[in-house]
Design a protein around this nucleic acid. Sequence first.
DNA 1: AGGATTCCCAAACGACCGTTTGTTTGTGAC
DNA 2: GTCACAAACAAACGGTCGTTTGGGAATCCT
Lengths: 196, 196
Amino acid sequence: MALAERARTARRAELVSAAARLFSERGYHGTSMQHLGDALGLQRGSLYAHIGSKQDLLFDVVEEGADRFLDRGAQAESLDGTAADRLRALLVGHVETATQHLDASTVFLNEWRYLEPEPRSAIQAKRDRYESMVRSIVEDGIATGEFRPDADVRFAATLILSAGNWVYAWYREGGELTPTEIGNRFAELITKGLEA
Amino acid sequence: MALAERARTARRAELVSAAARLFSERGYHGTSMQHLGDALGLQRGSLYAHIGSKQDLLFDVVEEGADRFLDRGAQAESLDGTAADRLRALLVGHVETATQHLDASTVFLNEWRYLEPEPRSAIQAKRDRYESMVRSIVEDGIATGEFRPDADVRFAATLILSAGNWVYAWYREGGELTPTEIGNRFAELITKGLEA
DNA sequence: AGGATTCCCAAACGACCGTTTGTTTGTGAC
DNA sequence: GTCACAAACAAACGGTCGTTTGGGAATCCT
């Protein structure tokens, strides 16, 4: 039973992984169950032994992406150090996550809107939580006098997320900057604009 | 005559406009000819009196988006003034364009990859041209001593484009910042990080 | 008035969509 | 050794896909 269960979940993980790749390449609506079946060497109907629907797959991929960002964000938030340190940690973590899991991150960032209302609002809640992490770091920096008192918290958070969320669109392996370097430079530049 | 004149037809413009809205809302693959027909009050087959294929529509929408960014970029590039002035003008123009034509910009930025190879490379050329505009402004700033001599031109351009290209994902009318203000604040923040 | 040209409808094309069904196959548990 | 059960197949479901065709009004040019 344990073995059978593990095998079942292993197959499902394969399917979610293939879905991440295909959804990121061809889009959710551009990917058919046939494409997914081909990727696993199965008939498209056989996939329904592992999932309830195509929507389920989309949700799994999107949630996987969301959770990774949240985890790294929480780590950064709990660091000791200045607000600038935590901001840097968050941005580095963000870029590292986006690049190490490029497929799931891409789906998370631009296929999530094809989720049906209920699952979409579950993901929206996670997005909101992540954004509030960024905001609270900036607020801390202002409270401690590290950042300009007149800095617009919402706008600063938006700029930080804009920088991080566009990475998937241009990053390709083998570039001249490592993900860690990219995150650090983003942090450097943005921090400079915020400093008191 | 047939092609050039038809392209100017009011009905076709309506169709391209509806396509911009629907493609941006539902994605290219998530939008059917039926959806487009409904939007114009026509049978889906009747649309083929005005276009050659669904791909043609996607190309028109994407190119329209690309050309608007290029136009504003060229205006900014030709301004007299410091590099920071031109950078500011470009960013303000970028944000204004993205928000005034949110639908076409959204399609330009995340449906263009569904173009077939030939039209896609035509759009890629325009994207490259735009990116090189941004780069040359930064290079100018370095050459005149306005920006730090050790600034990484490619990275700076990427950050600028990241900020501008993510606007479509969060901007909604009626926010507390106007597009012009958003562009100005982006420019302010990024310039500060680049200054000598 | 006559002829050509637009614009659109109605219907059909073959292909493919996501999903369900009934059945066979292989494997682990007792 | 046989039994239970999950995994996969083969086939079919009703529906939709993008596109083509043939014809019928309306409109424009002359």
